[in-house]
Simulated scan of single mutants.
Amino acid sequence: MNTYERHDAPSVFGAVHLGYMIIETNRFADWQRFGTDAIGMHHDALSRDLMRFRLDDQECRFLLRRGPAEDVVTTGWHIDDHASFEQIEARIRAHGVPLVVGTDEEAALRGVERLLRFPGPKGITQEIYTTPVKSAEPLRMLASGFVTGDAGIGHIALTSTRPTQIRSYFNTVFDARLTDYIDETMSGLKVKIRFLRVNERHHTIAVGNARRLPIDPIRTRVQHLNVQAATLDDVAQSYQRVHEMGFGSLTVGQHTNDRELSYYARTPSGFDWEVGWNPVVVDEATWEPSTHQGISVWGHLPVGETILDKLAQFRTGALSLAHPENTVPALSGTGIADD
């Protein structure tokens, strides 16, 4: 075991679950249409400046607040027990990183208890909490259901110029484990993607980078986020709605590593939203990291992409050279051997 995978304290792996995300946007009408009529989630309007989406009996899985970012600005992590919560808190304090205790009002908006906030990579605030609040209100949604539970609500995918540091950050904070790699070539660029897990879900964090080029071609902090549909029919029906409503990004396909069958929609804020079904579940007793060639076995073809879209990505990549990426060095400075 190398230093990257070792902590003196007991591991919190398995006690950590992606619980909610906060999205900042000024496109509330478009987001309500996207979330309810296209993806099929339950919607709650809280005020002119706040709304939530539900996937299950928890009060909040996605909190949308009015603002200019047009991006995911916060990820919330459900911690199983108070001992693990306090262990994570102690790690962050030991590294000299500031922590902020969430107010009662902030916790209520997120539908949680015992809320702490601290800086994360790429400017995405990280929050941890213990007890999620359950809603007595029946779900009103087009989908039959979503898979959450011990695996959390899905995953987030980031692009980065410093992927090793991001991997180290999530290991330091959550004891994240490397599941596997994917090597791919996109628009002539060689891309490597690292897949990290914090529980039985194949991955909760994916980090992609252009090899040998310190550029980030994605404007948003998050390249995509993922939710797992309960049935194949849910994927098919939401895919049809997404395309009829003009939100299509990538067609239905199947990934090489987690075998998830999925499609991608383009959100009103510009990042992608993946709806998937039936990914593999990691067996910790037998799993060994490996490298896969190519992202997809089949499918996942671009919908309506033009040369102007490609040029915009190249411009974004060039501009990223002038803005060094913040990986929260105090939590991501562990040296590791990582391809």
Rank of each mutant, 00 (worst) to 15 (best):
A143W: 00
P132T: 07
V252C: 12
Y264N: 10
E5S: 13
K192W: 01
G67M: 08
L142R: 04
E284S: 02
M21T: 06
I92V: 15
V173C: 11
R315Q: 13
T179G: 03
L261N: 10
A265N: 04
L109I: 12
Q223P: 01
T75W: 12
Q228W: 03
Q165F: 12
A29T: 15
G145A: 07
R117W: 09
W287K: 01
D37V: 13
H300S: 12
F247M: 08
T286H: 02
G154S: 04
H78D: 10
Q87A: 14
V72P: 01
A29F: 13
M21K: 05
V281N: 06
R266V: 13
Q165I: 13
G333C: 02
A38C: 08
V297C: 05
E106C: 09
H202C: 06
E70D: 14
V235Q: 03
Y264E: 11
S47V: 12
S135P: 02
V101T: 15
F271V: 07
T220A: 04
F146C: 13
D49A: 15
L64K: 05
G276P: 02
A29M: 12
P138R: 03
V281C: 06
L46I: 15
T204I: 08
F314G: 15
D283F: 00
L331G: 01
S84V: 01
V191C: 06
L213E: 09
N2M: 05
I205L: 02
E86N: 13
E137P: 01
Q228C: 05
A312W: 00
E113F: 10
T179F: 00
R117F: 11
S238W: 01
Y129G: 07
P279Y: 01
D233C: 06
P279C: 01
E284A: 05
G145S: 08
P68R: 14
G317F: 09
V147Y: 04
Q126S: 06
K310R: 12
P98H: 10
K310I: 14
G19I: 04
A312N: 07
Y20D: 05
D272Q: 08
D339R: 00
R54L: 02
G335H: 11
R167H: 14
D49L: 14
E86H: 06
E86P: 00
A210E: 04
